[in-house]
Design a protein around this nucleic acid. Sequence first.
RNA 1: GGAGGAAUAUAACU
Length: 312
Amino acid sequence: VVSSTEMLYAYGGARKLEAAKKLFDSMPEQDLVSATAMLTAYATNGHLEGAEMIFLNSMPFHDIVSSTAILSLYAQTSNVVKAWDLYQSMPVYNLATDTSMLAAYTMNGHLDEAKTMFFDMPQRDLVSSTALLAAFAEAGNAKQAETIFKEMPERDLVASTAMLTAYAQAGQLDLAEDIFNSLPDKNLVVSSAMLSAYTQHRQLEHAKKIFDEMPEKNLVCRNAMLNAYAQNGHLEEAAKMFHSMPEHDTFSYTAMLSVCSQAGNIDHAKNLFDQMPRHNVHSWGAMLAIYTQTGHSAHAFDAFYTMKALEP
RNA sequence: GGAGGAAUAUAACU
């Protein structure tokens, strides 16, 4: 059971959900630990139904680790109410549990609840502090983010990235650059954050330089570069970027819809929209912009109401 | 042997 669980964990981390499922189903005995590893594999892939099924049907009982695993998934998938209900029902808490509940707030724009949660927690550490810092960052509150950052006894790359984003959101590009330049080791995430900071401040050349110097690239940083072109009016470069990407997600498509909107190309937009794997408020919002701007008011109303219905 | 934090997209509002 132990070695199979290690394998399960590895499959989960490698996003090999099918392989994980197969292995889990073939295990002669499943225990709470292996079931939690399977739950986490679903969670890593954003698969809420699968994770809930494991949680409800494949666990002899729930401990703090298994409950925290699904709590974290509720946070990621914007299920704040489910997260709170589960959290309430738990007999004991620890730092990871509290931080997951905190993340349910910070990841979904509930800044006031996040603050209350954070200061009511019996313990705080680098991880929980970074969660709140990121919430301040998103709210454009660099001052409060800075307070948290400076009070941290130790900082890591994750915390520094959150602080960089806080400065960028607040329009303090120079301070964001200071953080970036002070880092001895950079990764894909912090470089993407800096890239987007340059995009936001209309410094396309700097954004491109960061992108070109990145030793590894993934979907997120390619989307970020696509948006650097799109948001700075370089429509042809944006299209070229889009077509050169090995894969696309809803972020890539929505960025391209915005390119079509700027180019006034409604037919291409419709094509892209139909190709999208999923539609959400962002894709409908982009279509709304296109319809509004081209005077297709009936379609615009459709898009508007569809969007409203999708809103959480 | 299993759980928590950072980067990318949308009309309007702020």
